[in-house]
Design a protein around this nucleic acid. Sequence first.
DNA 1: CGAGAGTCCTGAAGGC
DNA 2: TGCCTTCAGGACTCTC
Length: 275
Amino acid sequence: MPELPEVETTRLGLLPAVCGQRIEHVIVRESRLRWPVPEDFALKLSGMTIDNLSRRGKYLLWHCHERRRDGILLSHLGMSGALSCTNPLTAPGKHDHIDIVLHNGTAIRYTDPRRFGAMLWIDGKAAQHPLLDKLGLEPLSEAFSGTYLYAQSRTRRVSVKEFIMNGQVVVGVGNIYASESLHLAGINPTLPVGRLSRARCQRLCDAIRTTLQAALNAGGSTLRNYVNADGAPGWFQLSAQVYDRAGEACRRCEGTVRMVTQGQRSTFFCPRCQR
DNA sequence: CGAGAGTCCTGAAGGC
DNA sequence: TGCCTTCAGGACTCTC
């Protein structure tokens, strides 16, 4: 499932293929995504030139313009979505919901078996949208620090794991990387976040950075059907320290990895070296 | 406002 | 073999 590193990998893969390209037409085969694809979606996109592809959290922002019209295509991969470059003549599969056909003859194909993803259109130049307005800090930005985590968490009673997965605090830390980051930081995921010391918040911040950066360097991770923009599967999960390893030996100490449920999500951790 | 539960969806996995 | 049930998971949305 795409987490921030996968989304960034997708962005980097698509960037050279779409930048400066005019959109010839758009085919919407299935409009029932996370939110219904608007009726006029294809119409709004047609004729637009893609100027840039940026990312905010796990959202991709396709900045477009026409003669006297600007807009942003906002896309999200949900948990099973993928964007790939393809020949538009290639027969679409069962879950190939949208094709964005470019002037150069290639198509950006959006595939998403579970349809948790999204494709929306924002009129105008400003990246203002209810979905973007309340997002927390980018984990790889300067502003994201131990001090920030400490300050934001003082009054909160949720567990540290649920806290770092809250997109209004920090974006892009999904279920896999939350477990991995906490393991690296040596912090028990069930601790109430409001009780973490300054020093531990700093360790956690560093661990989140390190974990996401490592995944980014590796080209994104994958579970089951994730495919990046070049069609190559990632491999980060092969080096997971705790995720999906319940009952197995901790890779850092003599402990055994345990699974617990937090906020209806599974968490993996080593009770021996995460306290 | 914060916390917790509910919701969308389909493929994989397990039980019988 | 095949049907049925359960579960996972991002993140918005609702309820308390």
